[in-house]
Design a protein around this nucleic acid. Sequence first.
DNA 1: TGAATACTAAACATAATGGTTAAGTATCGA
DNA 2: TCGATACTTAACCATTATGTTTAGTATTCA
Lengths: 111, 111
Amino acid sequence: MLHLDDEDTLDRTFAALAHPARRAILARLARGEIASVTALAEPFDISLVAVSRHVKVLENAGLVSRKKEGRSRRCRYEPAGVARAKDWLETHQQYWSAQLEALSRYLKDGE
Amino acid sequence: MLHLDDEDTLDRTFAALAHPARRAILARLARGEIASVTALAEPFDISLVAVSRHVKVLENAGLVSRKKEGRSRRCRYEPAGVARAKDWLETHQQYWSAQLEALSRYLKDGE
DNA sequence: TGAATACTAAACATAATGGTTAAGTATCGA
DNA sequence: TCGATACTTAACCATTATGTTTAGTATTCA
């Protein structure tokens, strides 16, 4: 189950998650809502242009997809992106857990 | 916001994870190794100064801790940071799953 | 057709990131 | 005490990120 995940993709994924507005947008879409850019922008004090670019960052990270529908865009959650980030974290968390006992022993001896 | 988790902390955590060198350092420490900055820098082509700052970014995000030990620093993995990031991802993944299930029921029942 | 809507793109200012080298601090070892 | 070691800090530079405003494109509606 060792998938050679593209480092750049992981970079873009974590970087996309590192901004509160983008996390808020993603959280909203993750609830199942399929929203336009204008609708997504509504809670924010920043310009629509800025929100549009936040959505683009999420899209480039594979966390969100955008489909043109008339003159608006239907933005939707893409579960694969979040799964990718979670997988990376879990891999290393699990590895750590497996080694926890050995580490614990080491710390006792070393300190 | 709704949850207690500091948005800034989450920003720093995800931002810290968004660089391949920092992920590599974190992955190494997550295996249980407690390494000096010099040891951590060894596999990289960048300067020790650059690595030292990467470790600092990880430290500021709560992913790693550094303890002075003689003239070197013992860097160690801090599980809380990774857990924080994973929790955020899981929360929103679960939201989506819950909604999906509800939608599925709705479609089956026709109401 | 012409105005309004829902964006996206371009151009710009400013701040943050990530690298460098040079200099400073603390500790160890002879 | 003096030099080497293991860093950190400072100063600098290039690039990227995030916001702005203005302009452009596509679509809908009167």
